[in-house]
Amino acid sequence: MAREAPFDALPRSWSASFLRRLRSWPVIPAIIFGFFVAIAVVADWITPYSPYATALSNRLVPPFWEETGTLAHLLGTDRLGRDILSRIIYGARVSLVAGLAAVAVGGTAGTILGLLSGYFGRWADGIIMRATDAMLSLPIILIALLFAVTLGPSFGNLILVLVLVMWARFARLVRGEVLTWKEREFVALARVAGCSTLRILCRHIFPNVVNPLMVLATLQVGWVIIVESSLSFLGAGIPPPTPSWGAMIADGRAYVTTAWWLSFFPGLALVLVVLAINLLGDWLRDFLDPRLRNLN
């Protein structure tokens, strides 16, 4: 499918070479992503205020460059006088933990099921793949709302819903990969040499699946972060007052005419993180596995 050689020497327009360079040299997205990871880790020490500290006398202060803004609150305060910058920094923790946790748990489960499904085939494959199809056609946001209404919104339930779709995507990818690898000679040789099934799966097949797996995992983190914030926006994600970007954007919705900064900054943080992750994922794909270039 991919027609373009990775290191094509043909002359290109300036804009194309810029995009190409950005992709082949992912320093900027790596820095952005690293920055958000860093602030999430050290949030306790760098936030100027507690993300929960309300100060009603300081409500809706605009960012510092506006006329009534103050350097005490660089990005302003919300309707309860809470510092937006501090809440964004803590929100990074929520978004990244949710994204990484859901992908780690769902990815591991999906990989194991995909390995089994692809290697053993027959009824195991039949059951796992039908379940995968079912999961992938579920309206995930609505299922999450259903969870929130019945079990109550909580961080655990949120992760549970995300894992529920996540494993299916991984299982499908891994299964496809296993199908292409298991007929290879080295696998047959390993079997003849007396390797156990577990050893063949772990030592001979799995290492070949790692590259596409890494690519999928990276791209999924971005997707999960968007879904998480959408659910928090709808009031079905992480319950208040925990600062999450989605909930902060929802809070600002009522003030869109008077206090634009309430929604704008958390959204900007969200877009930066997801954009950085998507760029890193694209780069990883080109770098590790050019076959997958047209995956999306």
Partner: peptide
């Protein structure tokens, strides 16, 4: 395409309103 998949709809909607 890259921007479309990185910008969440709810934030985009609020910005469009603003």
């Amino acid at each position: 395409a890259l921007l479309g998949q990185s910008i969440p709809t709810f934030w985009a909607g609020i910005i469009l309103i603003a």
